[in-house]
Amino acid sequence: MQAYGSTEAGGISRMIYAEECKQQRSVGRLSENLEAKIVHPLTGEFLSVGQQGELWIRSPAVMKGYVGDEEANVKTFGCQGWLKTGDLCYIDENGYIYIVDRLKELIKYKAYQVPPAELEQVLQSSPEIIDAAVVPYPQEEVGQIPMAFVVRQPGSKISAVEVMDYVAKKVAPYKKIRKVSFVNSIPKSAAGKILRKELATYAMSAPVSRL
């Protein structure tokens, strides 16, 4: 059994049955007694099936608010009891939820929002790469550009240009990796989450290759 949830909301979705577990990359269908909608993070527009936006949920299990922190409550709750999860998601025609990334981790390239997790999946699909992480790198002309930290497979001599070309063939032009730094390992928390802040700080002083 697999479940997706949060401290503020409890269980949001689950995968229990064999049919559900076949939906690769999904976190399952909504749990009982819970409503959900996908909302455009900038306009607040309600989005349709397959469209990416912030997942909002409503349930008797959702907390009432943060004690003594009105600013956090304003950011976290919409009208009529909706909780903003902060997760960029979409829901398919069969009701399965797919998490794309955390909204706060999106890279702002020109007028586009680039999900680091999507680029990390592409990088990790290369037989030359063991692990990878993508972080925003400040660039005055466009705001931010995607920078990749890459762990090569033992014996691999893949170059930074080859890494960037590999990704460029698989994503839209605005999502291309534009800086690369090779590292021995990707820093992660005890729970396995990439320590992006640590990498973003290191990015400002790391030797990089740029496209």
Rank of each mutant, 00 (worst) to 15 (best):
G5L: 03
T7G: 15
T7I: 15
A9R: 03
A9V: 06
G11S: 06
I12W: 01
I16W: 13
E19F: 14
E20T: 13
Q23M: 12
Q23I: 13
Q24F: 07
V27T: 07
L30V: 14
L30W: 12
S31I: 05
N33H: 12
N33P: 03
K37Y: 08
P41S: 10
L42K: 06
E45Y: 04
E45Q: 06
E45S: 04
L47M: 09
Q51A: 12
G53Y: 04
G53Q: 04
E54F: 08
L55T: 05
L55C: 07
R58Y: 02
V62L: 14
M63E: 08
K64T: 13
V67C: 03
G68E: 11
G68C: 07
E71N: 04
E71M: 05
A72I: 08
N73H: 07
N73S: 07
V74Y: 04
C79E: 08
C79D: 09
W82N: 06
W82Y: 14
D87H: 04
L88H: 04
Y90M: 07
Y90S: 04
D92I: 13
N94C: 12
G95F: 06
Y96F: 13
I97H: 00
I97Y: 01
I97G: 00
I99V: 12
V100F: 01
V100A: 04
D101C: 07
R102L: 15
R102F: 12
R102H: 10
L103F: 03
K104W: 06
E105F: 03
E105T: 05
I107W: 03
K108A: 14
K108L: 15
Y109I: 14
Y112R: 11
Y112D: 11
Y112H: 15
Y112I: 14
V114I: 13
V114K: 01
P116Y: 01
A117T: 12
L119R: 00
V122F: 02
L123H: 05
Q124K: 13
A132R: 01
A133R: 01
V134F: 03
P136K: 02
P136A: 10
P136E: 05
P138C: 09
E141H: 09
E141T: 11
Q144R: 03
Q144G: 08
P146R: 02
P146Y: 02
P146C: 11
M147W: 00
F149T: 11
Q153E: 05
I158A: 02
I158G: 00
E162T: 12
V163N: 01
V163A: 02
M164W: 02
D165L: 14
V171E: 06
A172W: 10
A172R: 15
Y174D: 13
Y174W: 15
K176W: 08
I177L: 00
R178E: 04
K179P: 06
V180N: 02
S181F: 05
F182T: 14
V183I: 15
V183Q: 05
V183Y: 05
N184R: 11
S185M: 11
I186L: 03
I186R: 01
S189F: 10
A191K: 09
G192N: 12
K193N: 09
K193P: 10
I194T: 15
E198W: 01
L199Y: 00
T201P: 03
Y202N: 05
M204I: 14
S205T: 11
V208H: 04
S209R: 11
S209Q: 14
